[in-house]
Amino acid sequence: MQDYIFATITGQVVFDYERCRQCEGKPCVASCPAGVLKLEGDVPVLAMDAEQVRKGKCTECLACELECHFQGAGGLKIELPIPGLDALMGVK
């Protein structure tokens, strides 16, 4: 389920808020070196203008996704498509 999505330079960040609400520590917010995320209620949202984030404020460093995976509830996914990768890997 995709409850919150924002664009980055080359992809997007996708949050599953059902999982986010189960997460106690919200490590994704604290792990962002650029301060892109903040908490609003019990879920992460952008802490700045979405256009700023899309133009490079989010550096796509993957810190939020890694912290969510290892310390959180696994509700965050960063999608950074690589043109031609699916064909190379044999994915249809």
Results as ranks from 00 to 15, higher is better:
residue 17 Y to P: 00
residue 72 G to N: 05
residue 64 C to I: 06
residue 90 G to E: 07
residue 51 E to H: 12
residue 4 Y to D: 07
residue 66 L to F: 11
residue 49 D to C: 01
residue 62 L to M: 15
residue 22 Q to S: 14
residue 50 A to Q: 04
residue 76 L to K: 06
residue 51 E to T: 14
residue 24 E to G: 08
residue 25 G to M: 01
residue 23 C to D: 12
residue 33 P to G: 03
residue 69 H to Q: 15
residue 34 A to R: 12
residue 59 T to N: 08
residue 44 P to Q: 04
residue 59 T to I: 13
residue 55 K to S: 14
residue 82 I to R: 13
residue 7 A to K: 09
residue 54 R to F: 05
residue 91 V to T: 03
residue 32 C to H: 02
residue 46 L to D: 06
residue 10 T to P: 00
residue 41 G to H: 06
residue 42 D to V: 05
residue 43 V to N: 03
residue 75 G to Q: 11
residue 25 G to L: 14
residue 58 C to Q: 10
residue 41 G to T: 07
residue 32 C to K: 01
residue 14 V to S: 01
residue 59 T to H: 05
residue 52 Q to M: 11
residue 41 G to W: 04
residue 21 R to Q: 15
residue 29 V to W: 08
residue 35 G to A: 07
residue 69 H to P: 09
residue 35 G to D: 02
residue 63 A to F: 11
residue 62 L to A: 10
residue 63 A to E: 02
residue 53 V to L: 00
residue 64 C to Y: 08
residue 62 L to C: 11
residue 9 I to S: 13
residue 69 H to F: 15
residue 86 D to C: 09
residue 2 Q to C: 00
residue 80 L to D: 04
residue 66 L to Y: 14
residue 61 C to Q: 09
residue 84 G to H: 02
residue 81 P to C: 05
residue 4 Y to F: 11
residue 77 K to I: 13
residue 11 G to W: 10
residue 13 V to P: 04
residue 90 G to H: 03
residue 11 G to L: 12
residue 25 G to I: 09
residue 40 E to L: 02
residue 24 E to D: 13
residue 54 R to P: 00
residue 84 G to F: 04
residue 36 V to G: 01
residue 91 V to S: 04
residue 48 M to C: 09
residue 62 L to V: 10
residue 85 L to G: 06
residue 55 K to Q: 15
residue 23 C to Y: 12
residue 64 C to E: 00
residue 36 V to S: 02
residue 27 P to W: 00
residue 82 I to K: 10
residue 68 C to I: 05
residue 34 A to T: 06
residue 33 P to Q: 02
residue 84 G to R: 07
residue 5 I to E: 12
residue 42 D to H: 03
residue 18 E to S: 11
residue 31 S to F: 03
residue 68 C to R: 08
residue 8 T to P: 10
residue 75 G to T: 13
residue 19 R to L: 11
residue 74 G to C: 12
residue 75 G to K: 07
residue 61 C to E: 10
residue 68 C to M: 07
residue 1 M to L: 09
residue 53 V to N: 03
residue 75 G to E: 04
residue 8 T to Y: 02
residue 15 F to Q: 04
residue 86 D to V: 05
residue 82 I to V: 15
residue 33 P to K: 03
residue 64 C to N: 08
residue 65 E to K: 13
residue 88 L to K: 07
residue 45 V to Y: 05
residue 84 G to E: 06
residue 52 Q to T: 05
residue 63 A to H: 14
residue 2 Q to P: 10
residue 32 C to A: 03
residue 68 C to D: 12
residue 49 D to G: 07
residue 52 Q to R: 12
residue 12 Q to M: 13
residue 89 M to C: 12
residue 16 D to F: 04
residue 67 E to T: 15
residue 34 A to F: 13
residue 11 G to I: 00
residue 27 P to Y: 01
residue 51 E to C: 04
residue 6 F to R: 04
residue 61 C to V: 10
residue 10 T to K: 14
residue 88 L to W: 09
residue 43 V to T: 08
residue 55 K to E: 15
residue 89 M to V: 11
residue 76 L to V: 13
residue 72 G to V: 09
residue 77 K to V: 10
residue 46 L to R: 01
residue 91 V to Y: 11
residue 70 F to W: 15
residue 43 V to E: 03
residue 87 A to I: 10
residue 65 E to T: 13
residue 61 C to G: 06
residue 2 Q to F: 11
residue 43 V to C: 08
